[in-house]
């Protein structure tokens, strides 16, 4: 009997048993200790590898990038000029909005949520570093270096200055797993900025970095270049986070709804640092009482 376990066959059997134990643990949500131990050991090594890679890349890449950088600076200068004008206009609208809300005594559910992702990141040095990406192209997850010790909980939105990245799905001691927007299981309630038509933005996964917005009303509810924002419906995400821009509208006479293909505002393949919105508490709809109709007289 002991010889079996000392042999290669025995070792293979032990590994297969470990795999099935792992399947059972993860499906019941009890994988925490194992993954805490794993990422507790691996995270410093991953950070070291990333730092070393960035150092080498900066050393050799700098020489080749001068001309590209010059062209990029010129382009960015033009964009900045446009952005300054827009920023002034937006600021005016914010002031007007604030005054009107005060007049109506309108209370927001999350008064400490800031509208601008850039502002949020500038005022928060507590960025999370992306340690790893999923090795499979069938799912879209990243691992970040913040977890329970940094007060991260499941369901928290994850953003960058460019917009929404995804949400936290699993939390460990000092690591978290984030489901990206372009995963097939990702689903976000969204609104078209120009027409205020609502729909659901889902990922297409399997290697595609594009999103699809479904259940839009038929008609002129959306057009190309429209900006898509989170609607806040459902309480999983705050309102007005940028999701992306429409690049294609699909509408056939036989369809019940219109679909739009969206390019995410965030490059989900090149994430380095993200921010977890810890001040935003996702609404726990499971605790809300089910409304019951009043009995008829």
């Amino acid at each position: 009997m002991l010889d079996l376990f000392r042999s290669r066959t025995g070792f293979v059997l032990i590994l297969i048993v470990l795999v099935f134990i792992g399947i059972a643990l993860r499906s019941t949500g009890n994988m925490g200790l194992v993954q805490d131990a794993t990422f507790g050991v691996f995270a410093p090594a991953q950070s070291f590898l990333i730092d070393a890679t960035n150092g080498v890349t900066n050393l050799f890449g700098g020489f080749q990038e001068v001309n590209a950088l010059r062209a990029q600076v010129k382009q960015l200068q033009e964009q900045l000029n446009t952005a300054v004008i827009d920023s002034v206009r937006v600021r005016e609208l914010e002031i007007e909005n604030s005054e009107l809300r005060a007049q109506l005594e309108y209370k927001q559910a999350n008064p400490d949520y800031l509208l601008s992702g850039v502002t949020v990141l500038q005022e928060n040095d507590n960025r999370a570093r992306v340690l790893a990406q999923d090795p499979s192209a069938l799912v879209n997850y990243i691992i970040i270096d913040q977890g329970r010790e940094e007060e991260v909980t499941v369901g928290m939105p994850v953003i960058t200055p460019a917009g929404l990245v995804g949400r936290v799905t699993e939390v460990g001691a000092n690591w978290s797993r984030v489901l990206l927007l372009n995963d097939t299981t990702s689903s976000v309630n969204a609104v078209v900025q120009s027409t205020r038509a609502t729909g659901i933005v889902q990922g297409q996964g399997q290697g595609s970095d594009l999103l699809v917005m479904r259940y839009l009303p038929l008609g002129a509810s959306v057009k190309e270049d429209d900006l898509i924002l989170t609607s806040g419906i459902g309480g999983a995400f705050p309102k007005r986070l940028v999701l992306g821009q429409v690049i294609q509208v699909n509408q056939r006479d036989t369809d019940l709804f219109t679909e739009a293909i969206i390019r995410p505002s965030v490059d989900l393949t090149r994430l380095e640092y993200v921010l977890v919105m810890k001040k935003f508490t996702p609404t726990d709809i499971t605790t809300e009482p089910t409304p019951t109709p009043a009995p008829s007289p």
């Binding site: 795999v19 099935f20 399947i23 994988m31 090795p135 069938l138 799912v139 691992i143 799905t169 489901l179």
Partner: peptide, 10 residues
């Protein structure tokens, strides 16, 4: 790889 992945374990 399964430890790093969000795909079904195993």
């Amino acid at each position: 790889l399964d430890l790093f992945s969000g795909a079904p374990f195993g």
